[in-house]
């Protein structure tokens, strides 16, 4: 080994150590900062489960604190093919924790005895949740339309 080789090896090790130190400090600072932000969950995916007769929502909780779903309510609006003729409104109290920085599946069970969802049926679901840092109740409204793909250009018009 001569001085030139030593210089290159030393520089490489210095780069790696600097990377490690910077990554460590940045990671912990980011986690601390994100932890202070009260997160609001978003629904990334929703689908209808025929066997369970339930609409299942995938909740993404972007915060570092666990949220709690207190209750969920829905408004059922029959489409053209459905035999049900009236609106249905229901409010179901639940107690589901949403894991921090992850996705939780929440099932909205429809009333027993009602018919299966048909194409064009619309469910307006409202989900109420609480945050551990406050006593307020927050809500998310989600429109679920069965049979028609979301975000399709023909759907918007």
């Amino acid at each position: 080994m001569n001085r030139v080789i030593l210089f290159f090896i030393t520089s490489l090790i210095a780069l790696m150590i600097g990377w490690g130190v910077g990554g460590y400090i940045t990671y912990n600072k980011t986690i601390e900062t994100v932890g202070k932000i009260p997160a609001s969950p978003i629904i990334v995916k929703s689908y209808y489960d025929k066997e369970k007769h339930a609409v299942i929502f995938s909740f993404f909780n972007p915060g570092t604190l666990p949220l709690n779903v207190v209750s969920q309510s829905f408004v059922f609006k029959p489409g053209k093919e459905s035999k049900e003729k009236s609106y249905q409104v229901e409010n179901i109290p639940v107690n589901i924790p949403l894991i921090p920085l992850g996705i939780t599946a929440v099932a909205l069970k429809l009333k027993k005895g009602t018919e299966e969802l048909k194409n064009g049926d619309v469910i307006m679901a409202t989900i109420y949740y609480t945050h551990p840092l406050s006593k307020d109740v927050y809500s998310i409204a989600h429109r679920f339309e069965y049979g028609i793909k979301k975000n399709s250009p023909s759907n918007k018009k």
């Binding site: 080994m1 090790i13 150590i17 460590y24």
Partner: peptide, 22 residues
């Protein structure tokens, strides 16, 4: 990480001293 930086200095100076000695 703090100790790693010092260890790096110690290692580098040791190698430099030995290379210079050779």
């Amino acid at each position: 990480w703090g100790a790693t930086i010092t260890t790096f200095f110690v290692w580098g100076l040791e190698q430099l001293a030995k290379v210079s000695f050779t």
